[in-house]
Computed example of a mutant assay.
Amino acid sequence: MEYYNYLKSLHLIFVITWFAGLFYIVRLFVYQIEAAKMPSPEKEILQKQYKIMTYRLWYIITWPSAVLATIFAISLLCLNSGLIYADYMQVKFGFVFLLFLYHGKCQQIYSQLQNDNIKYTSGFMRLWNEGATIILFAVVFIIIVKDALNWIYGVIGIILFSVILMLGFKFYKKIRERNQS
């Protein structure tokens, strides 16, 4: 158990860098999609640069962080296997599963954009970017609070937070559209 806190610290560091990568990669997706609508030669210059940036972020920071966070999480669970049965951990595992799905979808979008296959709008990507935020809020509150009743309220709070984010996004979109007119 002497190494438990070191493993926990490393797990947390790589979770943070994983989320940083997820937050920024989707932002780069927005820029890549918007660059595709620009006139030449600006379009080609920006697309080339964004492909390099997304490649480096995805494969040098985001993927390694996801793998290392997972390895350290499994190590922690091996050292303290009783955590697996805690109610709050079951809920956390659900959100971590959603995080892996989110990461997988980002991989798919990344691959499409690297091949100049644009299937989503920049508006969708701005909204998609909030997915990682919602998962992060949920996991942090579940892990810190742990009390069943409080994390149930926390999940309800996350849903309300999501609704507020969506409304804020729509409000911001209207302001942007008005300013472009």
Rank of each mutant, 00 (worst) to 15 (best):
A66P: 03
A20M: 01
E2T: 10
F72L: 14
Y110D: 12
M89I: 15
S75V: 08
W128C: 02
I109P: 05
Q112L: 09
P41W: 10
G94H: 05
G94V: 09
N150E: 06
A148G: 01
F93W: 12
W58M: 14
F171D: 03
Y50G: 11
L79C: 04
F29H: 08
L83Y: 10
F161A: 03
L165K: 00
T54K: 14
Q49N: 15
I159R: 02
Y3F: 06
V26H: 06
V91R: 02
A69Y: 12
L160D: 01
I13E: 06
S181Q: 08
Q180T: 10
I52E: 11
D87F: 11
L113W: 07
Y153W: 13
L46G: 11
P64K: 04
M38A: 09
W128D: 03
N5W: 07
F95I: 07
Y172K: 06
W151Y: 12
N179W: 01
I13K: 04
G104S: 14
C106H: 08
N179R: 10
Y50T: 15
V96N: 08
L79I: 10
N80T: 07
M125W: 04
L149S: 13
N179F: 02
V91E: 02
F72Q: 11
Q90T: 12
S75E: 11
L165T: 00
I156Y: 03
L127M: 05
V163R: 01
Y6W: 13
V163W: 01
L68H: 05
Y6T: 13
W128L: 09
P39G: 02
Q108Y: 12
N117A: 10
L98R: 08
I134N: 00
I33L: 06
N129H: 02
E44I: 06
A35Q: 08
L136D: 05
Y4G: 04
G157R: 06
I152V: 12
I13Q: 05
A36L: 06
Y172V: 07
H103L: 14
Y6M: 09
Y50I: 15
V15G: 07
A73I: 10
Y102H: 15
I143P: 00
L22A: 03
F171C: 01
K174F: 04
Y88R: 03
V15F: 11
Y110L: 11
K105F: 04
Y55M: 07
P41D: 08
F14C: 12
I61R: 01
K48S: 15
K170S: 00
L83R: 10
E177Y: 08
S40L: 05
I45N: 12
I60N: 02
T54A: 13
K8S: 11
F72A: 13
Q108G: 10
L12H: 12
I45Y: 13
T121G: 13
I144F: 04
Q107Y: 14
M1W: 12
L83S: 05
